[in-house]
């Protein structure tokens, strides 16, 4: 099943590898930025600490991935140049990651849908032909398993908790579900990365994601929303209005005081 088991194929282009690693790195970075904003404002101290942990893990993944993207690109951009000095249109994160924290149900639904995708993707990437990417994925996997346990655990408690928590979680699912189209629809780059043995087979990710998420929704007594075609994909640089605001805040210091170290 893993790409590594396949025979060696034509190498991917530098541009493809760069774009692909950016998709992964940016998705983790933007998700970490959202969760970081919640620290100190969670529903209970234990949840505050858990969300802080997850933010730290995601930020750690983002740093490794962006540093790798910079090396692949070979133009001297490091993790900070990539994080702080690109505008929204150059970001390649999944649009789901940039959606606001909302109430705790929205935070959990967003995390859960992304965590399932990340877990399956990294599981597969651990066997990637790109050794550096495979090493990062392997390290991230342990974290991703914990993230999924946390978010799916809360999805179940909220879905099967009180009438209010159930209603809020349904509303969050309804609001965010359209962004799962992007997680599961492979574009030409995803397909090329799979063919050259770097990225996972898109059909495999879709199937495993569906199984994982459906089981969690069933346990949470939540209806799966109807599929909606949503072709505006962050991974191709087409974002929602939220990303610009997020970046304006995140990038403020390096933009206001260019060229200094911090």
């Amino acid at each position: 099943m893993s790409p590594a088991a396949e025979p060696a194929r034509a190498p991917a282009s530098v541009e493809d590898r760069f774009e692909y690693v950016l998709r992964l790195g940016d998705t983790s970075l933007i998700a970490a930025q959202r969760l970081g904003a919640l620290l100190g404002h969670g529903p209970a101290l234990e949840e505050d600490l858990a969300l802080g942990n997850i933010a730290l893990d995601l930020l750690g993944q983002a740093r490794l991935l962006l540093a790798l993207a910079g090396r692949i690109e070979g133009r001297g951009r490091d993790e900070d140049a990539l994080a702080f000095l690109r505008d929204a249109g150059q970001f390649r994160n999944m649009a789901l990651a940039e959606q606001p924290d909302g109430d705790f149900a929205e935070t959990i639904v967003r995390q859960c849908l992304l965590d399932a995708w990340r877990l399956e993707t990294y599981e597969s990437l651990a066997g990637s032909q790109d050794r550096e990417l495979a090493d990062i994925a392997e390290k991230a996997l342990k974290e991703c398993r914990y993230h999924w346990r946390f978010s799916a655990g809360w999805l179940v408690r909220l879905g099967d908790g009180t009438a209010e928590s159930h209603a809020r979680t349904c509303a969050a699912l309804e609001k965010l579900w359209r962004f799962t189209d992007e997680l599961l629809s492979a574009d030409a780059l995803d397909a090329r990365m799979a063919v050259c043995g770097i990225g996972p087979a898109p059909a495999l990710i879709r199937e495993r994601w569906e199984t994982r998420v459906s089981a969690a929704l069933a346990e949470a007594k939540l209806e799966r929303p109807a599929h909606r075609h949503y072709p505006w994909h962050g991974k191709r640089g087409v974002h929602t209005e939220h990303l610009g605001h997020l970046l304006a805040e995140m990038q403020f210091l390096p933009r206001a005081y260019p060229g200094v170290s911090w």
């Binding site: 970075l29 620290l39 930020l59 983002a62």
Partner: peptide, 29 residues
């Protein structure tokens, strides 16, 4: 956690952001 958490989203490098998140989390601990 609040006054320091105020700068998590605006930390000027990813390393500083990571250290600050860990610090604010330590305070919660």
């Amino acid at each position: 956690m609040l006054p320091e958490g105020n700068w998590i989203t605006r930390a000027p490098s990813l390393r500083r952001k990571s250290v600050l998140i860990a610090k604010v989390q330590d305070e919660g601990g």
